[in-house]
Amino acid sequence: MADQPVSDRIGGYADAVLAVARAEGAQAEVESELARFAEALRSSDELQSTLADSVIDVERRLQITEDLLGGKALPATAALVSLVVGAGRGGELVEIIDAAIDRAAAGRNRRVARVRSAVELTGEQRSRLVEAIKASAGLDVEIQAIVDPSVVGGVVTEIGDDVIDGSVRSRLQQMRSGLG
């Protein structure tokens, strides 16, 4: 079987994930759980590499996802993650989840704003940020909050290819560039 382009393949898996979530009637919860699982993958390179390692038996990798999600997430969420890992696409799991969330938001005429911060945003801060983005860019967005200690302080917002970086990390990097 000829390999498809990566973007097409990721889009296909994302559509499948959304279809299953809708079919299970718990799309919002599945999206939320998938987003948290994607956040966990981003924070652990070892976990990403393990799920992507074809040398490790598929059963072993599926057992890892079961250990992580079993009893802690909806069965549909765990099944979707197992579906992707069992298909040998564990290395593209984060991109597939992001694509599924983006397509789900697009279905609601919104875009996804991935907001990284060193501490978790409060509900009030999320609401204000949604309003601020709508006021400045004219976009209706859904916040996907990601706690990332590497940000150190402040916030980094990604909307598609646009990045609004107000993190302490970027300022330290600017200082590093100035010193270097």
């Binding site: 501490v119 204000r128 400045s136 917002t157 290819d161 609004i164 107000g166």
Partner: peptide, 18 residues
């Protein structure tokens, strides 16, 4: 810092370089 960031976003255009 987060509040200041939100205020900055609200007060500026989205030019991809906040």
């Amino acid at each position: 810092l987060i509040d200041g960031y939100i205020d900055d976003v609200a007060g500026s255009g989205s030019n991809g370089d906040g």
